[in-house]
Design a protein around this nucleic acid. Structure first.
Lengths: 232, 232
DNA sequence: TCTATGTATTGATATATGTCATTATCTTTG
DNA sequence: CAAAGATAATGACATATATCAATACATAGA
């Protein structure tokens, strides 16, 4: 994937654009291209912060990003891990123009920032684009409902199982997978203390459900893990 | 509010339509009117059920409705209470055409059901309408983030405080308020067992924060309740 | 290489919360 | 009005989970 040479030529030839841009014509793509900034973020860098004004549509072209709500007592709730090519867009753009969650690179990342006015203009003028966007928003919302159930109705083993399955299926899309997420991050994804997260991981390891080696995880007994996820 | 005589004359003269319809022209309103069904639901009746196909845009014109996710072990999570005039629309319409939560009348209610194709057509042809809709969806989403924090990072007193404040400010908009929600419902709003919900309510009562008389609640020490909500 | 710093792990303990059983209270209905 | 069924309330207890403190491990600098 020699992306670098591609985005230089602009959105029209970019292979890494979010699929909601797929239906746009050349004029529209150029319109975006004119208002586009490309930024590199190092792992650990904050991309935007909850409570600050939301000025851009952001499309992740490289790396990985965690989105998280900053709650009380310095506790965070990780909403999800975004990978390329996916946009990161909070609900603020059509409400109060603010960010309602924070985003931080968990790997060295690259993102295209598009002027919000341009983005909103496209929503107004191109119904297909608007529908595609609504579809994305809807899928996000459906995922959030699953998260609600996981976090509020499952006990710790079920929640950790959900996190492991999420990482395998949605984030890394491979079975032995290596993550840059810390144990604290795993805890923040499952709404528990990091000590508890560690303990559950150890139990899973002792029961032969997973293999853990530092930040490398392998799910060995998938059936059992899925069952734990389902029975809560 | 002699609504009944009004909707008979159709959407154009209806005072009870969701405000996102405010910007529609007469032709568009008539278009909706042609595809509109008006239905009465008795308290306790299911309006639509999670997992069934989503065929209509639903606008509540009278009564109150609880929306809830049906989770594991017959446990529900109430997402919110909808009151007139507000629409009830799940994320399924732009995704898999399914309901992702259930809706039940908690009072005798009246709703307008509008054909989804008509609704989607308006989204495509009227950018203001699309933007208003996106705004609604966004506000809902922002509220969901607050709910995430309340449910995952606050202890029981904080969660019950949030429920009480939600009912006072958003649902009944009055301070002594009488609700038709059961204690089980209050528990389902705050993600705890009904016994725990009852216990916390009693503690609040003993501490002089609220007054409870069956289903009538009055917040006496607002400052204290807000503090409990904030400190979790 | 050694120290310093952050992260991970573990165990002991405190606390929050759920479950179960029982009784009380309210509502419906014959 | 009485009986039956639901909902609410309470207490005793079990369990899930957080917190605290101590230790181990890794990693980055000097």
């Amino acid at each position: 994937m020699n992306q670098n040479s591609q985005y230089i030529k602009g959105c029209a030839v970019c292979q890494d654009k979010s699929d909601i841009f797929g239906g746009l014509c050349l004029t529209e793509l150029n319109q975006i291209d004119d208002k586009r900034i490309e930024v590199h973020f190092k792992a650990g860098e904050l991309i935007f912060k909850q409570g600050t004004p939301n000025m851009h549509f952001l499309c992740l072209t490289k790396g990985k990003v965690k989105t998280y709500i900053e709650g009380y007592n310095d506790k965070n709730l990780i909403l999800g891990i975004v990978k390329p090519v996916e946009y990161i867009l909070g609900p603020g753009i059509y409400a109060d123009q603010m960010h309602h969650f924070s985003a931080m690179a968990i790997e060295d990342s690259m993102a295209c920032l598009v002027d919000l006015a341009t983005f909103k203009g496209l929503i107004r003028t191109n119904p297909e684009f608007a529908e595609d966007f609504l579809k994305k928003v809807s899928l996000q919302s459906i995922y959030n409902y699953e998260l609600f159930i996981s976090l509020t109705q499952k006990q710790m083993p079920g929640r950790i199982a959900d996190v492991l399955l999420y990482m395998k299926d949605k984030v890394y899309e491979s079975n032995p997978f290596r993550t840059t997420l810390s144990r604290q991050d795993l805890a923040d994804m499952s709404g528990m203390s990091k000590e508890s997260a560690i303990r559950i991981l150890r139990e899973f390891k002792d029961e032969g459900i997973i293999q853990v080696n530092g930040n490398e995880f392998e799910i060995i007994n998938m059936e059992h893990l899925v069952k734990i996820s389902q029975t809560g």
